[in-house]
Amino acid sequence: MIHRLALMLAVLLCLGACQDEPGGGYTGGASPILFEVADADGETKAWLFGTIHSLPDDTEWRTDKLDEAIGNADSLIVEIAALEDSAALFDIYRRLSVTPGQPDIGLKVTADRRPALFSLIDEAGYRPRDFQSLETWAVALNLAQVFDTGEPENGADRAMIHAFKGRPIHEFEGVEKQLGIFDQLPEKEQQDLLAAVVEEADTRSADPARLQRAWLSGDIKVLEEATTEGMLADPELRQALLVDRNRDWLSQLIKRLDQGQRPLVAVGAAHLVGPDGLPALLERQGYTVSRVQ
């Protein structure tokens, strides 16, 4: 479990679920979404690349356009930079997630959802008592990984970090801030999160490779749909998990652009689509954002 903690948020945002077979039957050329950001004078200021945080072995997704952007950027910005420090990640997770004396896990969902919850717990290889000291959000994060059979070591975010070795790498959040988003949710919203994970189990099991195919092909329509489904259909959860974070990232990014940096921003693809995505937010600030892949 430790090595998967850094991708939990992506799993919950529905962009981390992958299959043992690369692409789940996808046979087209890979074209994950990539944007170029220019100022009012037409000068390129940054690139935005939508990542996926877990992939099966041997998935081919690097392209000439992306490699060109990597070569032209002077720095990288990711959600979490220290993805390979498993011990530190686990220490933060344990400190935030463990609170002794939690109510029985079955009491954290409505009675009609309990059979599905206990079935999901069993499928995940846990027992209900394994969660007796975990806060509700942490239970949800653990159970959300049931259908993730890709490997974090193959994630596009890690590959980008390796590609920028020797150049500046910055992070928008870091693992403590990212997991802290969940830890700070009111208990009601944490229970809504758990309920959404339980309800999504059937949908994801029916076609768990749907979003991976969309990521590989750069299908913005499907990716945008994912930002309004499941737990992100809940207004409070969507605000906390997507909208507020994008606005925070926008503020950080503009400060770096004002300093003359030309970064490549590599974050979960859900953050680059729709009216609340980074491209739309940048356009409202006067930048021109063009899709180049």
Rank of each mutant, 00 (worst) to 15 (best):
Arg256Leu: 05
Leu232His: 11
His271Trp: 01
Gln261His: 15
Val37Gly: 09
Glu135Gly: 02
Trp249Gln: 05
Val37Tyr: 12
Met8Asp: 09
Asp57Ala: 09
Thr203Val: 12
Ala40Leu: 11
Thr44Asp: 08
Asp130Tyr: 03
Asp67Val: 02
Glu151Lys: 14
Gln261Pro: 03
Pro168Ile: 04
Ser86Cys: 09
Asp248Val: 08
Ile105Gln: 01
Glu135Gln: 14
Gln190Tyr: 00
Asp130Ile: 07
Glu176Asp: 10
Ala6Asn: 10
Asp91His: 05
Leu216His: 04
Glu68Ser: 11
Asp234Leu: 08
Arg284Lys: 14
Leu282Phe: 06
Asp234Gly: 06
Gly260Leu: 00
Asn142Cys: 13
Ala280Cys: 10
Gln212Thr: 02
Asp258Lys: 14
Gly50Met: 01
Thr51Pro: 01
Leu179Met: 09
Gly268Cys: 10
Arg245Val: 07
Ile80Leu: 06
Asp112Thr: 12
Ala201Cys: 07
Gln259Lys: 12
Gly260Glu: 03
Leu7Met: 14
Glu43Tyr: 07
Glu21Ile: 14
Gly25Lys: 03
Ala69Met: 08
Lys45Tyr: 01
Ala270Leu: 05
Asp219Pro: 05
Ile220Cys: 09
Thr227Asp: 00
Glu200Gln: 15
Glu176Trp: 02
Ala209Gln: 06
Leu12Arg: 02
Gly29Met: 09
Leu232Pro: 03
Glu79Leu: 08
